[in-house]
Amino acid sequence: MSEFSDNKILELFRNEDTRNYGFNLLIKKYQKKVYWQARRIVICHDDANDITQNVFIKIWKNLDTFREESLLFSWIYKITNNESLTFLKKKRSFLSVPFEGLENQLSDCLNEESSLDTNSIQYKLQKAILKLPEKQKIVFNMRYYENLTYKEISQILGTSVGALKASYHIAIKKIEKYLKEN
């Protein structure tokens, strides 16, 4: 089945009769992307699940006011990002040792829910990604896993292409260093 274009989905959504149908298509098209993006940031499945549902509820409520100044996909990514980061902030505020504590928590989730052998290089990569600051982590995920162009990422994050390139390169250098040392 070929995916519907964003325009078609919006068109269906705007028509009162096909509103739900249009939104169903939107969920089908984007739920995995949203979930995986959130999961890569918050690591734990249950949290990613909550975030994904919240993101879609937000989309449902606000799709009417979506002005299409940006593309639908970057709008959705933006919401997902914000939701995930807000979630992490909340989670951090409950911890006594904010930064390292959060990393440890996420690392626990990684250990419990990952299919990877803890000695494998793929696992080490995940550990290295965990150590990145949030912004770099997000840029890295988008580029490395989703193969987005800098321009697309720039539309989502509202950061200049130059700055994105810089943070991506720094992120890669850090990961490379971590992999070398371990």
């Binding site: 739920q31 890569r40 499945h45 699940n49 549902q53 696992y123 896993y145 390169h169 490379e176």
Partner: peptide, 30 residues
């Protein structure tokens, strides 16, 4: 060009989701 070790690692999904998760997610959201 910048990271030979990283580039030689096969990209794999590190995480697992429960079976049929996305179907139930779809219904939940609806």
């Amino acid at each position: 060009e910048i990271a030979p070790i990283l580039s030689s690692i096969e990209k794999q999904n590190a995480f697992v989701v429960p079976d049929d998760y996305f179907d139930t997610l779809y219904e939940n959201i609806q």
